[in-house]
């Protein structure tokens, strides 16, 4: 019963959806303020969601109906499932086992895969181009993201979120060594969320709306919700890995701190997306392999050196 509430209400789908809408609002409002605009009112993401849910849903005749309808639900499910393993109110998450960080990163890959499959099975030309770009991009940012996120775990000699939090509680100073990893993961996360410098898969000025071109009504609403939840979970992942302080405090305080940390990451993401313009797909792949991957390697080297020099 507790597990069911955990999956459906808190910290499951319901909480994540609400928090996702809040994060989308913060992102859009800050984006607008940085452009010297007033920006959308606070209920805007909610109004968008309700409107899309209540709209007619069109499925193209040519599309693979099963895949087309299954993918949005799968995207939400995968993104929400990843949140269950991330510590929010204490060092221990709702579910925890040795190696949960690997599962979280792989679960966060599934939404990207559903964008590809959904776009591909809608058989629209624009959707197909967007889907292929989605996968191309996945291969570019995924490796730096993995190395960036796993570097702090290597320093702590564990694959588990709670043990990581315990380690950094015992040695708070070691968080400073992970700064490069944080920067790399932040940039890679922008690629994962398809935020502006890396919004090549849904480039609305070239390929209409990318993978989502043929989606309408509630399936589009689910996909947008999946992106929002992915943003929350991605930000939570960065918060849990790179800012693992304060998890030993009382549950309420620790949870408030968690919300602040996630919003901090979201604010960083939206400042970055305001600063840059869209890259081409080849520039994006070049950037990721030429600069991001070596930077994450440097992070690994630093952590190895620190581990050898200070911890042995």
């Amino acid at each position: 019963m507790t597990a069911l509430i955990g999956i459906l209400v808190f910290p499951g789908v319901f909480f994540l959806s609400l928090f996702g809408l809040v994060c989308e609002f913060v992102d859009r409002k800050l984006h607008a303020r940085l452009q010297h605009r007033v920006g959308p009112p606070w209920f805007q993401p909610l109004a968008d969601f309700i409107k899309l849910v209540s709209k007619e849903t069109i499925i193209p005749e040519e599309a693979d109906r099963t895949m087309f309808r299954l993918m949005p639900a799968l995207a939400v499910a995968a993104a929400a499932a990843a949140a269950l393993y991330i510590p929010m109110w204490s060092a221990k998450a709702l579910f925890s086992f040795s190696g949960d960080v690997i599962v979280v990163i792989y679960l966060l890959t599934i939404p990207t895969l559903t964008f590809f499959l959904g776009g591909w099975s809608s058989t629209s030309l624009y959707a197909m181009i967007g889907s292929v770009r989605c996968l191309t991009q996945l291969f570019a940012y995924e490796v730096p993201l993995f190395m960036g996120v796993l570097a702090p775990f290597m320093l702590a000699s564990t694959w588990n979120f709670s043990e990581l939090a315990e380690f950094y509680r015992a040695h708070p100073g070691y968080m400073i060594f992970n700064v490069i990893g944080f920067a790399v993961s932040l940039v890679a996360l922008m690629g994962k969320l398809e935020k502006v410098p890396f919004d090549i898969p849904e480039a609305e000025t070239e390929i209409v709306a990318g993978s989502f071109t043929e989606y309408s009504g509630r399936y589009l609403a689910l996909f947008r919700m999946a992106v929002d939840i992915e943003m929350v979970v991605g930000a939570s992942l960065l918060a849990a890995v790179f800012l693992p302080f304060g998890l030993g405090l009382p549950a309420g305080v620790a949870f408030a701190l968690y919300v602040i940390k996630v919003l901090f990451v979201v604010v960083l993401l939206s400042i970055l997306r305001t600063l840059f313009a869209r890259l081409r797909i080849d520039q994006m792949v070049d950037f990721c392999w030429k600069y991001l991957a070596p930077a994450s390697l440097v992070q690994l080297l630093i952590n190895l050196a620190v581990k050898g020099a200070l911890l042995s």
Binding site: A32, V38, G39, Q44, Y126, E204, T205, V208, A209
Partner: peptide
């Protein structure tokens, strides 16, 4: 965007 207006391509 004050009124929630967004330009969509599709």
């Amino acid at each position: 965007e004050r009124f929630g207006v967004l330009l969509k391509g599709t």
